[in-house]
Design a protein around this nucleic acid. Structure first.
Length: 233
DNA sequence: TCCCAGGTGTCTC
DNA sequence: GAGACACATGGG
């Protein structure tokens, strides 16, 4: 984030809230993660690392087909046994190790009752998740927000792309700095964070592509890139 | 054939 | 602490 005077910060916060209002008008409440249970959200959060969601869906379908979207049977599986099942999600040997570490952590902490995640302090849950090998900030925050329903904003590639296009952030700031910007600009509300991030993802997949087709973007009047054609870099 | 996609850990300097 | 690199599949 470039200038950081109090006035500039106020302006950015105001523009951020405006972005949310416009996305809300365009997409409605998106309350969202493409997973039906808390465990499915946790599994998906690991498998989606540096991968498109379509590849993750295939791996989730394999796990579901084998009755493995259930904490105890999943935690019994070794990383070697897991690897071929999550192959379609890419970097599958690495992800099998990370997924195994996560489900062992979840079973040790909650038993079968993942709903108890909701009773945690979000920062304490985040701290614990970050100690699990292979769980970094983004994956931890996705689990805290979407699986536990606790208010931590998720900063992912879509978030960086959309808000750097809008000129509200540079895009290369450290994760925690970007997250602080959202936390300081928005009410601390899990439903709002969930909604807003989901809308950002929808927007990024829809029109705010790496080589954007800016026509049809609900934010075009707020965006410095308005008028840029699809041929632009 | 190449680039990109909802990261993270390790190594090197 | 910053930067480079490995990990790997699937779609456009």
């Amino acid at each position: 984030m470039s200038t950081n005077t109090p006035a500039a910060a106020r302006l950015r916060r105001s523009r951020l809230r405006m972005v949310y209002e416009r996305l809300l008008v365009r997409f409605g409440h998106a309350g969202w993660w493409p997973g039906e249970t808390a465990l499915e959200v946790c599994v998906g959060a690991v498998l989606v690392q540096n991968t498109s969601w379509s590849n993750v869906e295939k791996a989730l379908a394999v796990l579901r087909g084998r009755g493995l979207l259930d904490l105890q049977p999943l935690a019994r599986l070794s990383p070697d046994a897991l690897a071929p099942l999550v192959r379609s999600s890419g970097t599958f040997r690495v992800k099998a190790r990370r997924l195994h570490a996560l489900v062992v952590f979840l079973e040790a902490r909650y038993g079968r009752g993942l709903e108890r995640m909701r009773e945690e302090d979000p920062w304490e849950l985040r701290r614990a998740l970050l100690e699990v090998p292979g769980i970094g900030r983004e994956t931890a925050d996705s689990i805290v927000l979407y699986a536990a329903g606790l208010p931590l904003f998720v900063v992912d590639a879509y978030t960086r792309r959309v808000f750097s296009r809008l000129g509200l952030v540079r895009g290369d700031e450290p994760y925690d700095e970007l997250q602080r910007f959202f936390h300081e600009s928005l009410p601390r509300d899990a439903a709002l964070f969930n909604d807003f991030h989901a809308q950002v993802v929808t927007l990024a997949k829809d029109v705010c592509r790496p080589r954007p087709r800016c026509s049809g973007c609900p934010l075009r009047r707020l965006c410095p890139r308005r008028g840029v054609s699809s041929a632009a870099p």
